[in-house]
Amino acid sequence: MRIRLDPDRCQGHARCFGLSPELFDVDDYGYSSLNFEGEVPTELEEKARLAIANCPEYAIEEVE
């Protein structure tokens, strides 16, 4: 599984970081980024899906 976070859409709700701190970083302004490259570790796929389903700005998505 691969995911993408669109920095132009992210408004810093920090829902992703709150639910899955293993996958995301937040900066001092509250905006979020992925803290890994490549595939989501298998054991964290559920958490990645949770982050996707809770972002109010639709900023995170699964990519092929």
């Binding site: 408004q11 810093g12 389903a53 809770n54 109010p56 700005e57």
Partner: peptide
């Protein structure tokens, strides 16, 4: 609730 894109804190640039 696992799918919860709530906007209690607003939406867009004034989050």
């Amino acid at each position: 609730r696992a799918r919860n894109r709530h906007v209690a804190f607003g939406s867009g640039i004034h989050r």
